[in-house]
Computed example of a mutant assay.
Amino acid sequence: MDKLYDVIIIGSGVVGNAIAREMSRYNLKIGVLEKELDVCNETSARNSGVLHAGFNNKPGTLMAKFCVEGNQGFDQVAKELGVPFKRCGKLVVGFSEEDKEKLIAMKEQGEKNGVKGLEIIGKDKIKEIEPNIDGEFAMWSKTTGILNPFLLTIALAENAAANGAEYYFGNEVIDIKRVDDIYNIKTEKDTYKTRWVVNAAGLYSDRVSKMLGIDDYTIHPCRGEYFILDEKVGSKLSLPAYPVPNPKEGGLGIHLTPTIDGNVFIGPSSEYIDERDDYSATQKIMDLLIKDGGRIFPHIRREDFIRNFAGIRPKLASKEEGGYHDFVIEMRDEAPNVL
């Protein structure tokens, strides 16, 4: 392809499309390369659909900064894009004194990050907010919300495309070379030329980094499995309900989340796997979801299960390390004009 782009974004998940939309506000020639045949086929499609408040993130990190900023500004984003969104709040439920100590620490961490409206509440208040949730006490987060991640990701892409960004699907990047200050990005279909490259490739971002000469990162795929409950259960749950998380696992625990469409999700589990595209559902994990989810939400019945699915987290923290690493947003000398 002879066309020269100012910027090519690799990856059209929610991050890649948000970047494409933001850059399309300017007079730039923008291309987006995606190995799948449409946007929102991997991580952005396979999650709980929760807009987090920002209390789970370590103060001072990019994760904390952008989670809080993103939450506070999302009403405007949803309005601009026409994306359904509900700021319903969330309960993080505990049962033991150890849980209570963790909730108090979580509240303090959230307040350091700038999260507003966090409150430790007792059993009576839990039942007042959501009668169908069980727990001895909880942290009540008023600013948490739920949204449809498919519609958000698609709306970002459509807005970027309407502003002139050009999308190329079924174009998996296989090689990148820089010649005379221009990047030649080779895919299975063509070669694309660009002055700047943005790596937003999610589960494959480490491989793209290596093509660009940055060898520091390894993505560790971590699978989470879900059950979807029938809409008739949706009336019994008005907001997300989470257990107190285990920081070592680096997940938020098996939780219950209502969807914008009226279903309920149970999940996700947290299991490191070898393959980045293994979306299998396993009987062992399905049984675990029922057991752990039923502790908080006792209205789980097998006849209400209508579907299961899995998502894969692109984690920089290995199984041995546990927990999270921060987001990586950087420019490096060994890869000029790359974000």
Score class of each variant (00 low, 15 high):
Met1Ile: 03
Leu4Trp: 07
Ile10Asn: 01
Ser12Val: 12
Ser12Glu: 06
Val14Met: 09
Ala18Gln: 08
Leu28Asp: 10
Glu34Trp: 03
Thr43Phe: 00
Gly49Ala: 01
Val50Gln: 01
Leu51Pro: 00
Ala53Glu: 06
Phe55Val: 10
Cys67Tyr: 06
Gly70Phe: 07
Asn71His: 08
Gln76Arg: 11
Gly82Thr: 03
Val83Met: 07
Pro84Trp: 01
Val92Cys: 08
Val92His: 08
Phe95Tyr: 10
Ser96Phe: 01
Lys100Pro: 00
Ala105Asp: 05
Gly110Pro: 04
Asn113Glu: 00
Leu118Met: 09
Glu119Ile: 06
Glu119Lys: 13
Ile120Arg: 07
Ile120Val: 02
Lys125Phe: 04
Ile126Lys: 00
Pro131His: 03
Asn132Gln: 01
Asp134Ser: 13
Ser141Asp: 13
Leu152Gln: 03
Thr153Met: 04
Glu158Leu: 13
Glu158Gln: 15
Gly170Ala: 06
Val179His: 11
Asp180Trp: 07
Asp180Arg: 13
Tyr183Arg: 05
Ile185Ser: 14
Asn199Ile: 12
Gly202Met: 12
Ser205Arg: 02
Asp215Phe: 11
His220Glu: 07
Arg223Lys: 08
Lys232Leu: 15
Lys232Gly: 03
Val233Asn: 07
Gly234His: 09
Leu237Ser: 12
Ser238Lys: 15
Val244His: 05
Val244Tyr: 00
Pro247Ala: 15
His255Trp: 01
Ile266Leu: 15
Pro268Asp: 04
Glu271Tyr: 05
Glu275Ser: 15
Arg276Ile: 12
Ala281Leu: 15
Gln283Trp: 08
Met286Asn: 05
Leu289Met: 11
Ile290Cys: 04
Gly293Gln: 01
Arg295His: 10
Glu303Ser: 10
Asp304Gln: 09
Gly311His: 13
Ala317Pro: 01
Lys319Ser: 14
Glu320Lys: 15
Gly323Asn: 04
Tyr324Val: 09
Ile329Met: 05
Pro336Thr: 01
Val338Asp: 12
